[in-house]
Simulated scan of single mutants.
Amino acid sequence: MKITLTVNDEAYPLDVEPRRVLADVLREDCGLTGTHLGCEHGVCGACTVLVDGKAVRSCLMLAVQCDAKAVRTVEGLAGPDGEPHPLQRAFSAEYALQCGFCTPGFLMIAAGALDADPDQIAGLVESNICRCTGYEPIRRAITHATRGDD
């Protein structure tokens, strides 16, 4: 099926099988490997991206569902000059990353909430799985970013 994915403001005209999930297309066809695949069942959150500003598990969403929609991945968080996003700076400042596998998912779910409702931080952190750092530094980093404490 011919679709056009608009990922991080760049158009990707693609011919994909209708059954392929967005995570695989982002990684394999678009070369955007920041979206990680962990459980492939929508549980861990490592594959979280924004579709039209809303956080989604890209391992559960079909790529064809994103035709003509705006997709934002972790690679699209930094500014045009490469300046890290406030969330990325806060994750570094608060030591909210260790192995880094879960980090893109946490960054993207938080980015979606920063644009919507920053009062949902606790629920956001509980929705993704981290096996290394623990959740307190991640909570602190998201709170740090919502306050604008650069």
Rank of each mutant, 00 (worst) to 15 (best):
M1G: 13
T4V: 14
K2Y: 01
F101K: 11
D150E: 10
C47Q: 04
E10A: 13
V125T: 08
C66V: 05
C44F: 09
L124N: 10
D119L: 06
A116H: 14
V49E: 02
D15N: 15
F101M: 01
A141I: 07
V7S: 03
T143D: 15
E28Y: 00
A46H: 08
E136S: 06
D24N: 12
N128W: 00
M1S: 14
K2S: 10
D29Y: 03
P137C: 00
E10M: 05
C130D: 06
D15A: 14
V74R: 10
Q65L: 09
E28H: 13
Y12R: 00
L87R: 06
C59E: 09
L97G: 07
V16F: 02
V74F: 01
G123C: 00
L107W: 04
V51P: 11
G79Q: 12
I142A: 11
C132T: 09
Q88W: 06
A46W: 05
E94I: 01
I3W: 06
G105W: 00
D15L: 13
A96W: 07
T73Q: 02
G134C: 10
G79D: 09
V51R: 11
G148H: 11
L32C: 02
I109G: 12
E94P: 11
M1E: 08
K2F: 01
T35Q: 06
M108T: 00
D117F: 11
T6M: 02
Y95G: 12
V71F: 09
D81F: 01
C102W: 12
H85W: 02
D9L: 08
F91P: 14
I138E: 09
K2G: 02
A145P: 13
A63T: 10
E75W: 08
D81K: 11
V7H: 02
G45S: 01
G31D: 05
A46N: 10
I129G: 01
T35L: 08
P86G: 00
G123I: 00
R140G: 01
D117I: 11
R131K: 08
D119V: 03
L77T: 09
V21F: 12
A68H: 15
C47V: 04
G112N: 03
C30K: 03
C102M: 08
V49G: 04
L14F: 00
G123N: 14
E75Q: 15
I129Q: 09
L32K: 04
V43K: 04
G100T: 12
L22W: 12
D52L: 03
L77Y: 10
V64L: 10
V56F: 07
Y135I: 05
M1N: 07
Q120I: 05
E126D: 15
L26E: 07
I109K: 11
K54H: 13
P84Q: 03
P118V: 07
C44H: 06
L87P: 09
G148V: 00
S127A: 14
L97T: 09
L107R: 10
V64H: 10
G123D: 15
A90F: 06
A23Q: 11
R131Q: 06
G82S: 03
L50A: 04
I129D: 08
D15P: 12
R147K: 15
Q65N: 13
E28R: 14
